[in-house]
Design a protein around this nucleic acid. Structure first.
Length: 478
DNA sequence: TTTTGAGTTGTTCGA
DNA sequence: GTCGAACAACTCAAA
């Protein structure tokens, strides 16, 4: 029988794999690289991660006597070939939730069943699948807090499923992994990623373990400090590729709380963030266009600007606002950005620069190792104000005070914008406010070593509020 | 059916 | 420095 791996690159707590292994029949572990059928082909950083993750999964499978079979092309055709080659009589997989992927899977399931091939699908990706929790009136939740309450009150994780003891099976023809073309070439920008991440199941569990060994206790406060290493779990890319499942995280956190090893406040706060990921999947499932269309259609009238130069300055971390630039440079160099800073840079793009949230979403999709089909668009829309349960329009982050509040000692900005390192703390987040003598002493020629602000905060804020004002009058007039 | 309270992460202004 | 109010109006969810 065939286990078709997709976004569930793990051996433990993998329901499809566990079900297949329980039959005691020879197993084929298959991964199909099918870019053409994807709702969105993976971005560059995600492809790098996937490459490493597949490598890790392949080794893990080999350790249990099996092989990871790789194929490229149409999923249905690849499955057919592997079925023909091995005589497999059943296919198991874990469910996906994006439109195209759902269609692909439904079609394949129907066709295989017609031919007498057994197909079974499972939930490996979510605590609760998007169609399960409903409001009193039968709809899906559109506000996080009641959703979280309902989830917390009803969720019981299923029993843990250990990895199979053996994965022996036939070895169908497989393409070399390099042919998937996932690793960046010429230039290989990923070298700076290597020391930072450990893609794969073992790396995922190590992250969780390290996080629960201490940082989780201060998570409610320190998760907001981007300069703090280990203030957050760093699990997002591991969850993205299913190297660890949210049910495993849930069990581990609850167990640690019950054993008194971690604080209740930290544990529940962390689980509520896991629930945000779930909530995003609810939105994606019930609103499949979430990555391209405004969830709140009032925003269809938003007077977004087009400004290639401003977009580029934002992407490269050259806006002249240190906290914004530090975030964008961290993203470029590491494939990840701290959550607090994601909000700041997203607010800056959509409000100060008045550029469409899709521009930012697309950039994140390409550059984040954790770019998630649900969380990424849902969060961008949340920040822009067009999303479900979104921030109110007048909430325009002030990049200066945000910097002063959350990067008080300047460690984050100094790390990613070293040209500003010698500025005193007080002026680090607003270098344009420094006088000539201070700039000179810090070795900065504004406009040369570090850019002047692309727009002043006051002007940007006013521009955003005015734009929202036109939105409101549009709505009122029909 | 109607009503009521509430809604992740903020900023600014004036006392 | 600190504090509370205003910043809109609407939709959601549950009573």
């Amino acid at each position: 029988m065939i286990v078709w791996f997709r976004e569930d690159l793990r051996l433990a707590d993998n329901p499809a794999l566990a079900a297949a292994a329980s039959k005691g029949r020879p197993l084929v572990c298959l991964y199909v690289h099918d870019d053409a059928a994807a709702t969105r082909p993976l971005g560059g950083a995600s492809r790098w991660w996937l490459d490493k993750s597949l490598e890790s999964l392949g080794k893990d499978i080999e350790r249990l006597g099996g092989h990871l079979t790789l194929r490229i092309g149409d999923s249905a055709a690849c499955l057919d070939e592997v079925i023909a080659e091995t005589g497999a009589e059943a296919v198991f997989w874990n469910r996906r939730y994006e439109t195209s992927e759902r269609d692909t899977d439904a079609t394949i399931k129907a066709k295989l069943k017609e031919r007498g091939i057994k197909v079974q699908s499972f939930n490996a990706r979510l605590l609760v699948e998007p169609w399960v929790l409903k409001t009193g009136s039968g709809g899906f939740y559109k506000v996080f807090t009641p959703y979280w309450k309902a989830l917390r009150a009803s969720y019981e994780p299923p029993a843990a499923m250990p990895a199979p003891r053996s994965l022996k099976g036939p070895k169908p023809t497989s393409v070399p992994q390099a042919e998937l073309g996932l690793h960046p070439r010429e230039p290989d920008w990923s070298r700076s990623f290597d020391p930072l991440w450990s893609p794969g199941e073992a790396g995922a569990h190590q992250r969780l373990k390290d996080f629960l060994a201490g940082p989780v206790n201060t998570y409610p406060d320190e998760r907001d400090l981007p300069g703090k290493e280990d203030g957050t779990s760093g699990l997002s890319p591991h969850l993205r590729f299913g190297e660890i499942g949210p049910a495993q995280v849930w069990r581990a956190v609850i167990a640690a709380m019950e054993a008194g090893q971690i604080s209740e406040g930290g544990g529940w706060k962390f689980l509520s963030e896991i629930a945000w990921r779930e909530f995003s999947y609810v939105l994606l499932y019930h609103y499949p266009d979430i990555a391209t269309a405004n969830y709140n259609h009032d925003f269809d009238h938003m007077p977004w600007r087009r400004d290639a130069a401003a977009l580029k300055a934002w992407q490269r971390g050259l806006t002249g606002f240190p906290i914004v630039d530090a975030g964008m440079r961290q993203l470029w160099a590491t494939g990840w950005m701290h959550n607090r800073v994601r909000m700041i840079v997203a607010s800056f793009l959509t409000k100060h620069l008045l550029l469409h949230w899709r521009e930012g979403e697309t950039w994140f999709w390409d550059t984040l190792v954790d770019a998630d089909p649900a969380s990424n668009p849902a969060s961008w829309q949340w920040t822009a104000g067009s999303g479900a349960d979104a921030a109110p329009y007048f909430r325009v982050f002030n990049p200066i005070t945000q910097g002063q509040k959350f990067d008080k000692d300047g460690s984050y900005v100094r790390r990613w914008c070293p040209e500003l390192a010698r500025l005193p703390d007080k002026l680090l987040h607003s270098p344009w406010a420094a006088d000539k003598v201070i700039l000179e002493r810090a070795g900065i020629r504004l406009g040369e070593d570090y850019p002047k602000p692309v727009i002043s905060h006051e002007e940007g804020r006013k521009q955003a509020l005015d734009a929202y004002e036109t939105l409101k009058s549009q709505r009122d007039s029909g």
